Simulated scan of single mutants.
Amino acid sequence: MESLETHSSRRLDHLHWPEAASRLREDRSTLVWPFGALEQHGPQLPLATDALFAERILSLVLESLPDAWPIWALPPQSIGLSPEHRGFPGTLSLSADLLIRLVVEVGEQMADQGVKRLVLFNAHGGQIGLLQTAARELAARAPSMAVLPCFLWSGVPGLKDLIPSMELQNGLHAGLAETSLMLALAPELVGPERPCDGLDSAIPIPEGWSLEGAAPYAWFTADISSSGVVGDTRGADDSLGERLKTTLMAHWISLFSSLMRSDWPPTADARRVRGPSTMHP
């Protein structure tokens, strides 16, 4: 099974310290920290699903960027915030304050070593808001470094052409997309079951409210799904998974390329140098 271990040129932890000392202080030096989770993903997907997606897609994306660009991956953070999956064996969850402290403490050290940008490359939907909060806290404490919290599946053009609209809207966990992507990335880790579960919740939801969306509530998987799946996996296959992989890669190659060609986003230190805006409303 391929992993970031085979792509040492893009792993920060594979550099010798003198090289790290110089490379981290280069203009536009950027670290990407993949975030996943250790949580149930139905009877057919491994506990490491989110961490594997973040690590593997990031590896493929960074491999596609010019060698001269100063961008590296940190080792993945494989345990995250997963209280919504409590009750399913194998699930482990850090507390919110611990995860925020982890991001802030590691991030401050990276800023002290000269890193210009830290991207939190997250593949677990249950910690999107938390990592946004952690990024804001880190940015306040380390004003010389820009912090960019991202979600693997967010803003990716073309997903609506690959996933049926009902599944795209309601397949919230271990559904068609995740099962297919895993069949493309690590088929040996996929079990034979193809559940369709969690779509007709036993809990009546008032009109206008939803599991996720504009007016969500803090749901727990066990309340709506006996298998751990929230979605319909019956159409999952490796062909769809390959198309999803290609779509995700194209999106993130484009985003990282535009980032590395720019000095964006400005840090607090850079804003102070420029001074207040002279633009008028």
Rank of each mutant, 00 (worst) to 15 (best):
P83H: 06
T91R: 15
D223C: 06
S154Y: 01
T221W: 09
A186W: 08
V156D: 02
I203V: 15
G36W: 00
G80F: 00
T267C: 09
E39V: 01
L181S: 03
L172W: 09
E242G: 11
P266S: 01
G114M: 01
E212T: 15
F53M: 02
S239Y: 08
I128R: 13
H251Q: 08
R86D: 13
W264K: 11
L118R: 01
A184I: 04
F53E: 00
W17A: 08
A139C: 11
P70F: 01
T179Y: 02
A218S: 15
E188D: 14
A177Q: 06
P192V: 00
L259E: 00
L255F: 06
K116R: 11
L92Y: 02
A177H: 02
T233A: 10
G129V: 00
S29P: 14
L4N: 12
S180A: 03
H14Q: 10
L45F: 12
V115N: 09
S226D: 11
L98P: 14
I203P: 14
S93I: 00
L47R: 10
D161I: 04
G107K: 01
W264H: 11
S144C: 07
I163W: 07
L4I: 09
L58Q: 12
R272Y: 10
E242L: 12
G158P: 12
M145Q: 06
S59W: 06
Q169W: 06
N122R: 08
S22Y: 10
G235M: 05
L99R: 13
M1L: 12
L162W: 04
V104M: 10
E193M: 13
A215N: 10
H280F: 14
P89D: 02
Q77L: 13
F35N: 07
R86P: 15
R272A: 06
P46K: 10
L98C: 13
R56I: 02
A177R: 02
L65M: 07
G107H: 05
A270M: 05
R271F: 14
L159C: 11
L60W: 03
A268H: 01
R243E: 05
P75V: 02
A68I: 04
K116N: 06
G213M: 11
M279N: 08
A54Y: 00
D263I: 03
W33C: 13
L148C: 05
A236V: 05
A250T: 11
A268M: 03
F220M: 15
L181H: 12
N170C: 14
T30G: 11
K245F: 04
D67V: 07
A268E: 05
F53Q: 01
H124P: 12
L259Y: 00
P18E: 00
D232C: 15
W209Y: 12
E178K: 09
L45P: 15
R194Q: 13
D223Q: 08
P76L: 01
R25N: 03
F88E: 10
D197S: 15
R194Y: 05
W252M: 08
R274M: 04
S3F: 02
A54K: 05
A270F: 08
D238E: 13
L138D: 05
S93H: 02
E39H: 06
S3C: 08
A222Y: 03
I128T: 07
L240S: 07
W252N: 10
G241F: 00
L255G: 05
